[in-house]
């Protein structure tokens, strides 16, 4: 009986606290979690709560399009804001899982470049899939500078890793096969182009010891010497190098992608979510501080003015870096991803 009573009391207490909180709205933000969320919290969310009184609750999530689909089906949006990348964003937008962004609220002075102002999302950050290199494992006097080099196992011997999936790898294969950056998607839109990419991948397959799935895997494999060269997301390699591992980024022919902050359709705090998005891009200095801790910079104009040159050089959108990369094409992937991944799986098992 005693246990039952305390249970009831506890429930009442929880209900009271819940009611008290309802006065100040809480928005639920879904993202990758980990360090990224920690930095977002200290740079953006705490000042945001101080200014507006709106609380922010972060939840770490994966397979977000799958989750958004479930929310749409059941009619209960559990998130107010969610991070989405690349073709996930395009797929969610096309499938009607996202609220259109009210740009009059988010960016009333129209300061952001067009790439950041999407109908269904704010490009609040960017990242690039690049080659991560263990510099101490390079043959003496040699530098790896391109996907051609990555494929060249004679000049650069050693174990390698790539991401498990068709996205990026088909592009990298064509680059290794001598295709220029501006022709990649033109060629991939033909059946022969796809065949050509898979044929080139046949060449590198025996040297790939692991096809990674989570972003932490390639970093860990580089750190403990499991692989010498791997595709990876830029920010994690910067962090690895800062931690003292002899690792470097090859920006050349990296695959640059914006990451978007979006509002799920039917979000319970749509108004507050829009305020949150507006806050994310309101201050260039704040964005510079964020990018210096987490090199996934957004597109806020003037951001680089608040950054020392050494920090700027680690950013995928720093002009000299951006110039040598190519922009990953969401519109190519969104319609073809399923088919190409099915072929990818069959190819992988061959």
């Amino acid at each position: 009986m005693k246990a039952l009573r305390s249970l009831i009391l506890g429930g009442l207490l929880a209900a009271t606290i819940g009611a008290a909180c309802a006065a100040d709205a809480t928005i639920i933000v879904s993202g990758s979690g980990g360090t990224l969320t920690d930095v977002q919290k200290s740079i953006f969310q705490e000042p945001f709560t101080a200014k507006t009184g709106i609380q922010v609750e972060n939840i770490a999530t994966t397979s977000r399009v799958s989750a958004l689909k479930a929310m749409k089906m059941t009619g209960t949006a559990q998130w107010d804001v969610t991070e989405l990348t690349g073709s996930d964003f395009q797929q969610a937008a096309n499938a009607g899982y996202l609220e259109p962004i009210d740009w009059n609220v988010v960016d009333p002075k129209h300061q952001m470049p067009e790439i950041a102002r999407q109908e269904y999302g704010l490009a609040a950050g960017s990242y690039s899939t690049i080659i991560g290199v263990r510099t101490d494992k390079l043959p003496p006097g040699k530098q790896m500078t391109s996907w051609k080099d990555f494929w060249d196992v004679k000049t650069f011997p050693g174990p390698r890793a790539l991401q498990n999936g068709a996205l990026d790898n088909l592009e990298f294969a064509l680059l290794a096969d001598g295709v220029s950056k501006d022709k990649i998607y033109e060629i991939l839109r033909t059946d022969e182009g796809i065949d050509r990419a898979f044929k080139k991948l046949d060449e590198i397959k025996p040297s790939i010891v692991s096809w990674w799935k989570a972003g932490a895997q390639p970093v860990q494999m580089l750190a403990n010497g499991e692989v010498f060269y791997t595709s990876a997301w830029n920010g994690r390699i910067t962090k690895l190098a800062a931690d003292g591992v002899p690792a470097a980024i090859v920006w050349n022919e990296g695959s640059l992608k914006p990451s978007y902050e979006c509002i799920p359709v039917g979000a319970q705090h749509r108004k507050e979510a829009l305020e949150y998005l507006a806050f994310l891009i309101a201050d260039a200095k704040m964005n510079a501080n964020f990018a210096m801790q987490m090199p996934y910079p957004g597109f806020v104009p003037g951001m680089f003015d608040f950054m020392p040159i050494d920090a700027a050089k680690t950013m995928p959108t720093y002009a000299p870096n951006q110039a040598v990369q190519f922009a990953s094409d969401n519109s190519f992937w969104v319609d073809r991803r399923d088919k190409l991944n099915e072929r990818w799986e069959a190819w992988l098992l061959k």
């Binding site: 994966t62 397979s63 399009v65 799958s66 689909k69 797929q91 397959k205 790939i208 010891v209 692991s210 096809w211 799935k213 991803r337 399923d338 991944n341 799986e345 992988l348 098992l349």
Partner: peptide
């Protein structure tokens, strides 16, 4: 198999997980 397996060590459960992630429910 996902963590210590080689490139060919995909099992049925891994295949199912991939389908769920890609919304091919």
């Amino acid at each position: 198999p996902g963590l210590v397996g080689g490139p060919r060590d995909t099992m049925m459960a891994n295949l199912i997980a991939t389908q769920v992630e890609q919304t091919n429910w």
